[in-house]
Nucleic acid binder design. Structure first.
Length: 481
RNA sequence: GGCCCUGUCGUCUAGUGGCCUAGGACGGUGCCCUCUCACGGCAUAAACCCGGGUUCGAAUCCCGGCAGGGUCACCA
């Protein structure tokens, strides 16, 4: 049977880097096995969910080139793919659970539960409001064994059977994971407003959408147990589970949107990181294939497997992300890099830039000298300008009387170059060197300073070609005056 | 605090009882290449959390500590 996997984000903000990796792992698993990748929006937290967030997540996935076979925008055989659009379904399943004795209506108010929790916590010496949930409180509702139906709001709670021992599941990355039955309590299935909670909506949807494998972050390990109980109560076969390690910030704290700006996928786009570089980097954080580090998208599809996912949390390493980006900047097709570079060049002020030969030449010249597309664009700006401002120190050092004599000879040589390309321009250095006996540096540097204003640039032939005949000779003449 | 997961160089990791004198990558250091800056190449320092077992033999298996992370909501 072909696997059906899903990514089920909660639209409460931008696409988080951890979520992106979860999506990628699942997507890769689907592609590897010819399965289906489903995107489902879990927007039942009405306090925090926003349409803007849905769009942000969609945009993030698209940028990472993660496409979905079923979900928002593309539809599929088991709609809707947004939870708030199928509230009736949850109510129906909840009723079924009530009818079979696996759940009950609990008329206890939220405030009453909170008060009970607070009282319990205080009895254990905990008064800090934030620590209340750490007290190990297990709510026992007075409605647990009643079947009354009365007026007023109620939540539907799962009725945990009293059992001895432990139960668990076989995790595809971590192996056997178990928990004592007694650690579970009567969790809420449906809020008083009829909206399902995670542990219920998730199960209903995964079943309805015929999901076969649930791959998600390790923070969900503990929620797997109540979910397993819901599957049992409904008589549904649970999917296979795979829990992925978390990503920690450079400070070793869990990567959070609040504290870590790098948690935002699109921030990396803005920073000039290639989507595949981000994918490659984030893949290696928690998954490995022997000693290999760099993978093409195709290799990732051929090699990825849940069994090779690591067990422990990984720390975000900006240096390695940069190195990975530098690698793909150099390895990706020139046209692709040029197309992605163009917007950065535009926002750097070069409105005239277009996807032409000059841009591609610029990519070839500067992709070995840039860590990001932002940096590449910045370095390219002067090559699109008319004229240059000479760096005083550089001019003083290289545009001396001797330097200008050499520059004059170079000008003569360049004047005679018929086709203004690197192979034809590059010999200016060697030719003059053997003709005059001067060191190459004494020839190249004056040209470089004249052409770029500074002492740093690609090889002379490349630099001159990038500038173009007219502009290059113009700048040299300027320096010669 | 209860429960769950995890524990190899600074970081990401390879390693599934002998192949380990523990390998690779990023970062560090040194050298080479060289018209500048880069790219690249070569070399080098750097780790099996601690303690007990099991075994002829343990980074690998077991137990106990310790440490880190996660989770305990009418959030997901």
């Amino acid at each position: 049977m072909k696997p059906r996997v899903r990514f089920a984000p909660s639209p409460t903000g931008y696409l988080h880097i951890g979520g992106a990796r979860t999506a990628l792992f699942n997507w890769l698993y689907a592609r590897r096995h010819g399965g289906t990748f489903i995107l489902r929006i879990e927007d039942t937290d009405q306090e925090r969910s926003t349409p803007e967030s849905v769009q942000a997540i969609l945009d993030g996935l698209k940028w990472l080139e993660i496409d979905w076979d079923e979900g928002p925008g593309v539809g599929g055989p088991f709609p809707p793919y947004t939870q708030m659009e199928k509230l009736g379904r949850y109510t129906q399943v909840a009723q079924q659970l009530i009818d079979t004795g696996w759940a009950y209506r609990d008329y206890t108010t939220e405030e009453e539960v909170a008060a009970a929790r607070r009282a319990f916590a205080q009895s254990k010496g905990i008064t800090d409001e934030k620590e209340l949930r750490s007290a190990g409180f297990k709510f026992t509702s007075p409605w647990r064994d009643k079947r009354d139906v009365k007026d007023g709001p109620f939540v539907v709670r799962f009725k945990m059977p009293a059992r001895e021992g432990t139960f668990g599941f076989e995790d595809m990355v971590l192996g056997r994971i178990t928990k004592p039955f007694e650690d579970l309590d009567d969790f809420v299935l449906l809020r008083s407003d009829g909206v399902p909670l995670y542990n219920f909506g998730c199960v209903v949807d995964d079943h309805d959408m015929q999901v076969t494998h649930v791959g998600r972050g390790q923070e969900h390990i503990n929620s797997t147990f109540p979910q397993l109980m819901v599957y049992e109560a409904l008589g549904w076969a649970p999917p296979q589970f795979a829990h992925f390690p978390l990503i920690l910030g450079p400070d070793r704290e869990k990567l959070s949107k609040r504290k870590h700006p790098e948690a935002d996928v699109m921030r990396h786009k803005q920073n000039g990181v290639l989507p595949h570089a981000l994918s490659n980097f984030v893949m290696r954080l928690g998954w490995s294939h022997g000693n290999d580090e760099l993978f093409t998208r195709q290799q990732l599809i051929e090699l990825f497997d849940f069994k090779d996912v690591g067990h422990s949390s990984g720390v975000w390493n900006p240096d390695k992300l940069s190195a990975t980006n530098e690698h793909w900047l150099k390895q990706s097709p020139v046209d692709d890099v040029a197309a992605r570079l163009l917007p950065f060049l535009h926002s750097a002020g070069v409105v005239s830039a277009s996807l032409d030969d000059k841009l591609k030449k610029g990519v070839v010249c500067f992709r070995e000298r840039s860590k990001t597309l932002v940096e590449m664009a910045e370095k390219l700006v002067p090559y699109y300008a008319h004229g240059v401002t000479l760096d005083p120190a550089a001019a003083a050092k290289h545009l001396t009387a001797d330097g200008k004599v050499m520059l004059g000879k170079a000008r003569e040589f360049l004047q005679g170059v018929s086709t203004w390309t690197q192979p034809n321009l590059e010999p200016v250095v060697d030719t003059l060197a053997s003709a005059t006996g001067a060191k190459k540096g004494a020839i190249a540097q004056p040209i470089r300073v004249a052409a770029t204003g500074g002492t740093v640039s690609p090889g002379i032939g490349d630099t001159l070609e990038l500038l173009g005949r007219e502009e290059a000779l113009y700048r040299i003449d300027l320096a010669l005056k």
